[in-house]
Amino acid sequence: MDMEERVVGEVLVVRPVGKRIDASGSADFKGKMVDRINRGRNLIVLDLSDVDFIDSSGLGAIVSMLKTLGKKGELRIGGLKETVDSLFRLTRMDRVFRIHPSAEEAVLALAAAKSMAKAPA
């Protein structure tokens, strides 16, 4: 599973470049993401704008990322195509993940949430 990674401020933006996150690549994808989280990346935006197809194994890998982050981090999703979004709605995962129209908007929202959390009361 090839993916491009860039860091914007404290946010790691991960963009899978293959068209599919399916049962053949989901374990590799999950392993790479858990590795990033274990190395201290806890603000992550998953840019799915290039992804045409996700099956339940791919979705399971993304759920696993969320569980690994736990309460110590945050995951946002951006750039979902309408088709792939329908998988999130079908499985009710649209209520679990914070989904933004684009990765850029996800980064801005995550950075804003982070700075608000840091601001003194």
């Binding site: 099956d55 339940s56 194994s57 759920v63 696993s64 969320l66 079908l90 499985t91």
Partner: peptide, 25 residues
Amino acid sequence: AMDYDPGDLEALPESGMGLYIMQSV
């Protein structure tokens, strides 16, 4: 059924969704 609590992180399903998807679609 996909009747898990979306706020309960540990209870979120990571597998076993295939048949549900087929029967829904």
